Simulated assay, not measured.
Amino acid sequence: MRYNQDRRTFMKSAAITGLGLSALNFGDLQSLAGKRVGIIGLDTSHSVAFAKVLNAAEPDTAYMGYRVVAAYPKGSPDIESSTKRVPEYTETVKKLGVEIVDSIPALVDKVDVVLLETNDGRPHLEQVLPVLKAGKRVFVDKPIAGSLADAVAIFEASERYNVPLFSASSLRYTKGIEGLDKSTVVGADTFSPASLEKTHPDLFWYGIHGVEPLFTVMGTGCQSVKRIYTEQTDIVVGLWADGRVGTFRGTRSGKHEYGGTVFTQNGNVVLGPYAGYEPLLKEIIQFFESGKPPVSPQETLEIYAFMEAADESKRQGGAAVTLESVMKKAQSKRN
């Protein structure tokens, strides 16, 4: 898969730039004041990749001196593909000069900002609350939560504690999107792998990588969703309030790739290939510095409402389901 190939290239590059980091001396930690990064969850390659780039011997100036200083390794309680990674990834980040702590409160006391990287979205609400209560800006990796109701609750907590956060797939920054005049977009088709995980709504686990670029180019305003489902393929058709149509194809067979086509008033734009993790990481650092999320809560919640509506359409045999209906259901669970 192109995404996996690019990820391996990025990880290899990060590993090369990080040679000798076991002996890295951050010097007086006071010099890192305001730039100490903590990681929650060492069950995903994202944690290792981000740590290697930020803690490189000569990091890119785009990262503004931010360094990972502490990590809390526990992630998913029961997803084997996640839990089995923790020992290896813990040892890897320790060699980067990262202190391993035994609780999230202990982590929060040692850092200024947080990367919530747990691969499993279900514990994200519980994990993010101590961070928000402490007033620390946080990036929540995908999926933002294991349910739409929890996603709503996370943003409610962000507002309650007046602490900004954002969430995004790295595919939001796929090639072809940068520089696109979104005011000219009349429709879009995107695609990505869409492997399933029984503990999460179908598209939350991996389909998010194709749904997020769809919303990145189309913007908010999707009203309803219809889904065609087979064991090998998902096709989800979204109808926007202004009459535009956006579609997502999720694959579970054949060669898995990421991309799409954006239809504009001036011609078609091809999306892809995948641009790696660094464009997202640079946006995260800008957010840590400014406190201004690059993706609004409204857009993120609409993305997850789209995917939840797709699940409901599947349950109803492909019937149209409004995003308003699934949002009301999610909000009622919070009351």
Rank of each mutant, 00 (worst) to 15 (best):
E91I: 04
G267A: 02
G238Q: 11
K142S: 09
A14K: 10
M218R: 10
D202P: 10
I144E: 07
K175T: 15
E91V: 06
E99T: 05
I154Y: 10
P293R: 07
V131N: 07
L239S: 14
T199Q: 09
V111M: 08
A15I: 07
F166I: 00
V236R: 00
N119D: 06
V237H: 05
L29G: 02
A49M: 13
F215S: 04
G20L: 02
L148A: 08
V140S: 11
L32F: 13
Q223E: 14
Y277W: 15
R227K: 08
E156V: 00
E324S: 13
E212D: 15
V186E: 14
V225L: 03
F155E: 12
K136A: 05
V217I: 05
A149C: 03
K35C: 09
I144G: 06
K136M: 05
S13E: 15
V186G: 03
L323K: 01
Q331V: 14
G38F: 04
E99M: 00
S169Y: 00
A305E: 08
V217A: 01
M1Y: 07
I284L: 03
S192R: 04
T118V: 14
Y206S: 15
G27W: 14
K226Q: 15
S167L: 04
P193S: 07
L323Y: 08
D141C: 15
T230Y: 01
R315G: 01
Q30V: 07
E283D: 14
K110H: 08
F139T: 10
A330T: 09
Y89D: 04
L21W: 12
F10W: 09
I235A: 15
L271V: 04
V186Y: 03
G146S: 07
G272M: 05
G272N: 05
R227E: 06
F10N: 12
E126L: 12
K133N: 01
E299V: 12
A62T: 11
K94G: 05
S296F: 01
A168C: 11
P123S: 09
F10M: 10
T92G: 00
T9E: 14
D102Y: 13
G317Y: 06
G259P: 02
S82N: 12
Y304P: 01
T322K: 05
A310E: 03
G317L: 09
G254Q: 09
V262W: 01
H209D: 11
P279K: 04
G276K: 09
F26N: 00
K74E: 15
P294M: 05
P143V: 07
I144D: 04
F215L: 10
A62V: 13
A57V: 08
L107T: 02
V113N: 04
R36A: 02
S325K: 13
V225K: 01
E308K: 11
G20F: 06
A275K: 00
Q30I: 02
R249L: 15
L180P: 04
V128T: 13
P294K: 03
R122A: 10
A145P: 09
P143C: 08
F166K: 00
T61A: 13
